[in-house]
Design a protein around this nucleic acid. Structure first.
Lengths: 375, 375
DNA sequence: TTAAATTATTTGTACGTACTAATATTATAT
DNA sequence: ATATAATATTAGTACGTACAAATAATTTAA
């Protein structure tokens, strides 16, 4: 045999590509067509195509056909030495108790699909966020799941996000968004969450409700909006002294101090309290106990996130459900879809998801007048 | 068809290489031998070998046989001209509340030093651990911080760890070790921790102490040893019924059920309890409350890890301090030192650290006879 | 003992069949 | 017109056979 048949076929196909007779992503003849054309068995055709696939000239799709590879992309991939698929997850704080659930939801899906997961945290500082974005732009990352830093304020690093898009590194946002970017996002409807917290207490007859929210991220601002919205809807006047806002820097001191002041009031002592998250509520309940008051007899409290903490305290408390794991999973699915459908021309429909919050009612909230426990 | 036959063969061969059972340039079984071994056709064997050749694991020589490729050369070439420095952190469970602290300690140091941090979790399953080790061996990682999976049992993946060493990818272990490997490690002296828990109660006059430990990791086994050791030292007899062990699979059910049995005893009802971690203690205290008993009046309890949970419950409870963040930081420092001093000839002295546990005494433990709170 | 020839082994090429799984297309029903 | 179901197409997996080409091992002849 002068030259192997499969090598002739291989050469014929390769020549066509090199001569520009087949464009990238254009379908080549099917295996059965090639069998007839070259009068060989399917095995021989597959051998030829198989080698061309390995060498990066073609790619196959079961059920669809065999297509001409986009050689330009492959060359640029080679240049970046890309063998490993990586997704970066950027959060504000690793310590937050909500973080493990989100990571867990995302990590399991990503690792099952062959992606490596890298984590970064910004400590809610722009400077650190910029460093990380620089890293992501220059490093070997295919996609990014990111929780915006300081989402309540205008972000000085928006250009870096735009650069991500320019460099074909898709990203999705979780928990909050920078509106200007209009990104794919996965977040809870926090206005509605704040509304539910407050509405629940108002419907139980409470009129004097404290709210404590962290307002350097947009979640807290939205929850505060929901608090106000509920008061408006039910025509309950708001005492400005009942609104306590804090931020990352003073979260260890301010809520405690303010609450002690509030509980020491001789008049107008509140009968209800809604909080930014369950962690805060645990601290709040501690202070309430120290003042020899009891939940829910003297004061009803509502948390946020519906974390395990809400179940572990002696008085299990009412809290807004947060779809932590589902959110992580959905974000992971979306980013994989975005990464794997980057071929130009292909249109993909990925929808942002806004999760509708629900209230998990437990023992910490009761009717204002009777003081009975609502189960 | 669950998994393609050729993929099984492919995986079997690849595993052998990764485990170091086949050396570079060593001949593997011939196609006809593999046909017999796996009871498949030659076509299937060739398909498997073909893919491994394409992926660079094997090479073929007509007439001579198929041989193991010299992968190390390729890997080291890749590593010398790469720009990105990566460290992998492998844990058993992301959900555990102790995990964020360790990650945080490690992440901040590593990112400050220009390393990217990837996370993996084994779900405490050997199969998943093997997958991850394969990933680490073939991927672009400079060093590994790993928490052993199922550390109480002999590990079937030891060869993969040895391959890490062969491929110059240093690793350190946290929380537990596989003794056979004698690795650099960072862990708490868990025997001493279990001893302190129990000694504290014995010194308060307790003689009837329940212990509940998770024993599919070596931490739990060691803590149980400490429990026994303390009884021996103070000549307190041990009632075997007071020892409850559980594992990953039944940790949601068994401890609860067993404790309910124990607290229902008519005679010999325990006056003290030591637990595997603070999470367990919170559940325990819940059950104690449900039985209309009180801590520490009726029963004294001691936790482990000294997590925020110990401060958040109404009765703040005594717990063994765990140097979570410090451990993460020390492990990170060590792995960076190992990575950056890999030049042959250079001798580096990195010492394992065994942290000495201390007891943080709070309100959950009191003198047996008087029932007074020890502050 | 050495060199050449023979034989056995091992991979390479090539034919065939059969069925499965994924995708695309067409026909059908709403 | 729009979903839905059925059908056709296409690649994927797996069995078999046969012979060629290269190498390794053995035998034979000088």
């Amino acid at each position: 045999m002068l030259e192997a048949k499969y090598k002739k076929i291989k050469h014929a196909i390769k020549s066509k590509i090199l001569e520009g007779l087949i464009n990238p992503h254009e379908k080549i003849s099917s295996e059965s067509e090639l069998m007839k054309k070259f009068s060989v068995s399917r095995h021989t055709v597959r051998l030829a195509i198989g080698e061309l696939v390995n060498e990066g000239w073609l790619y196959r799709e079961q059920g669809a056909g065999t297509f001409c590879a986009d050689r330009a992309n492959i060359e640029s991939n080679k240049r970046t030495n890309k063998t490993q698929k990586n997704i970066a997850i950027v959060t504000t704080f690793i310590s937050e108790y909500i973080f493990p659930s989100i990571i867990r939801g995302a990590e399991s899906y990503l690792s099952e699909n062959g992606y490596h997961v890298s984590i970064f945290n910004t400590h809610n500082e722009y400077e650190k966020e910029r460093q990380i974005l620089t890293t992501l732009l220059t490093g070997n990352y295919d996609g990014v799941i990111i929780e915006p830093t300081n989402s309540a304020s205008a972000n000085p690093n928006l250009n870096y996000y735009l650069q991500l898009e320019n460099m074909n590194k898709p990203f999705v946002m979780i928990n909050a968004v920078y509106d200007e970017l209009e990104p794919i996002s996965f977040m809870l409807d926090d206005v509605q969450g704040g509304f539910l917290q407050t509405e629940h207490l108002i419907q139980l007859g409470h009129q004097n409700i404290v709210c404590m929210h962290k307002t350097d991220d947009s979640q807290g601002q939205k929850r505060l909006k929901g608090y106000i919205k509920a008061h408006r809807k039910y025509n309950v006047p708001i005492d400005p002294k009942n609104i306590v806002t804090y931020n990352t820097l003073d979260e260890m001191t301010k809520p405690v101090e303010e609450l002690e002041k509030i509980l020491s009031r001789k008049i107008n002592c509140p009968t209800g309290l809604v909080g930014y998250n369950d962690q805060l509520i645990l601290n709040v309940m501690q202070i309430i106990r120290d003042k020899d008051l009891s939940v829910p007899k003297d004061i009803s409290v509502v948390g946020y996130d519906d974390s395990p903490l809400a179940e572990l305290s002696e008085v299990k408390f009412t809290s807004v459900k947060h779809p932590k794991s589902q959110l992580g999973l959905d974000a992971a699915k979306a980013i994989v879809k975005m990464v794997e459908n980057q071929q130009p021309g292909k249109i993909i429909d990925i929808k942002s998801i806004t999760y509708v919050p629900e209230l998990n009612i437990r023992q910490s909230t009761s009717n204002f007048k009777s003081g009975l426990i609502i189960s």
